[in-house]
Amino acid sequence: MGRPALIAGNIAVENRRARHDYSIQETLEAGIMLAGTEVKTLRTGRANLADAFAGQQEGELYLFNAYIPEYQVKTVFTHETRRPRKLLVHRKELRRLLMAVTREGMTLVPLSIFFNPRGIAKVQLGLAKGRKTHDKRAAEKERDWQRDKARLMRDRG
Rank of each mutant, 00 (worst) to 15 (best):
I11K: 01
G59C: 08
K40Q: 06
N10T: 15
R82C: 04
W145H: 15
A8C: 06
V101E: 06
L111M: 13
R156D: 10
L34G: 01
D148R: 15
A66M: 11
L98M: 06
R151V: 03
I32G: 04
R103G: 00
V76P: 06
T133F: 12
I32Q: 04
Q124M: 15
V76Y: 10
L34V: 00
L88N: 06
R118K: 04
R17T: 14
E29L: 13
I32H: 04
A66Y: 07
G55P: 00
Y67P: 00
V109Q: 08
R17Q: 14
I11S: 05
H134A: 12
H134M: 13
T75W: 01
E26T: 10
F77D: 09
N65W: 05
T27W: 08
A121Y: 03
L6N: 03
N116M: 05
E60D: 14
I11F: 00
F114M: 00
L28G: 07
R118E: 07
P117T: 04
F53N: 04
E142N: 08
L108R: 00
V109W: 01
R16T: 12
Q72A: 14
G105T: 03
M1S: 15
L61H: 02
F64I: 00
T75G: 15
K122W: 03
A8D: 14
R43E: 01
D21K: 07
E58H: 13
L108I: 11
L152F: 13
D51V: 09
R96P: 02
I24S: 09
M106I: 01
M106T: 11
L111P: 12
K141Y: 10
N48D: 15
D155Q: 12
Y67H: 13
A50M: 09
A12M: 02
D135C: 02
L63Q: 02
A138G: 07
E38T: 03
R131H: 02
Q57A: 09
A121R: 02
R103K: 08
M33A: 14
A66C: 11
I68L: 03
V89F: 02
T133V: 14
D51C: 06
Q56C: 01
Q25N: 15
Q146T: 05
E60T: 02
R137L: 15
T41Q: 10
H90P: 06
Q57P: 02
E58C: 04
A5G: 12
E70A: 11
D144Q: 15
L97E: 01
V109H: 00
Q124A: 10
I24E: 05
G126S: 09
E38D: 08
A138H: 13
A54M: 03
P4F: 12
T102F: 10
L98A: 01
R151H: 08
V109L: 04
L111T: 10
H90E: 14
M106N: 07
K129G: 05
I113F: 09
T107I: 10
E80Q: 14
L125T: 00
L125P: 09
A128I: 07
E140P: 00
G105C: 05
A35T: 11
R46E: 14
R85L: 05
P84V: 00
E70S: 10
M1G: 14
F64A: 00
